[in-house]
Amino acid sequence: MSIQLRFGPVLDAWRELAAGIWLTLQLSAGAMVLGLLLAIGCAWLKLYGPRPARFAVNVYVEVVRNTPFLVQIFFIFFGLPAAGLRLSPDAAALLALVVNVGAYATEIIRAGIESVSHGQVEAGLALGLRRLQVFRLVVLKPALRAVYPALTSQFILLMLTSSVVSAISANDLTSVANNVQSRTFTSFEVYIVVTLIYLALSLAFSALFAAIDRRVFAYPVAR
């Protein structure tokens, strides 16, 4: 017995698939940048902020890291309208991804900041820099460098997690795949193609991260 694979109907839907890839890319890249900024802010608050702010960040991180992403996205899409905030599926998806990756990245970056030796901070202070300047100019870069591999693998995971947004009808790659397979009954073929696309996207992001690593973090450090 052999399975007949029909890729024709899948390839016919290339416009839809391309639109799905584009949305997946936008959501992933957007969430990476915004999530990184959010995480840097939260990590700073967690280490140096006032007590209530530290407490708030802890609550945020623990809640997000201990609940499923699907529940978070349902909460944002179906729950927030009750509080008067109605987001489109795409905006809700982006917000959910930012909130999610922000929490994970907060912990990663906090670890990075703590790895920077105290001597460097003191050197910065001795030069007359204020606390925030020390953080921005002295601490941040080596901190990010230290946790860069963990951070990028979190971002790749984020891109793969974005497939869940089809649950709130955002038309990302997975959503398009579901639509195509339900219309053409070529589920096996569609998912083969989509798996390859996700793999290609992951590899592309990895290559991009490697390039950033070479440009930004390639400086010698004293050991």
Partner: peptide
């Protein structure tokens, strides 16, 4: 269930 939820929440 999700479609109904979307209607109820005004999405």
């Amino acid at each position: 269930a999700s479609a109904v939820q979307a209607l109820l929440s005004g999405q």
